[in-house]
Amino acid sequence: MAERPEDLNLPTAVITRIIKDAIPDGVNVSKEARLAISKAASVFVLYATSCSNNFAMKGKRKTIAAQDVITAMEDMEFDQFVEPLKNCLEAYRKGQQGKKDQKKKSKEQSDSSKDHPEEGGGDAGSDVEVDDNENEAEVEEEEDEDNGEQAVSVADSDVMIISDASSD
């Protein structure tokens, strides 16, 4: 998966933004400190992954589930993250459910859904996003085909005119 070593770092711009949001305005964060936090975050992901995976394996499951991550936080003694994470999970599930409903609706309405692309709201689920993009792509293709036909018919009429002229 990871072809380059940089792929295992988290993007600095995002890290900087999270740090800035967390501390009061006007506090200067040195470049070295930012880099250290970024590396620490990557290691935190790995540590959390290994702990979560242990819990998944204990339960004889191959897939790491949401509960495994929450249990891992308790195990790592980051208990203060458990409550916020539970809230996030609840909101995320609600959002996903909302998206599924939205998708159903948009399938029923088929074409009319493309007039209101903003209705979906959140942008969390990558699956749903991909589907949206595919839909858009299809629509664009259809439009292109339409244009193509028109072009052909124009060309036909051009030919007609030319042939008329030559017959005179």
């Binding site: 967390a22 949401a66 994470l85 999970l89 969390a124």
Partner: peptide, 24 residues
Amino acid sequence: VSCISQEALFLAGKATELFIQSLA
């Protein structure tokens, strides 16, 4: 690690966000 559920991935990302905040 073989498989990660979408929810677990989301929570891991969120937890990392919280971690960066609290570390700072």
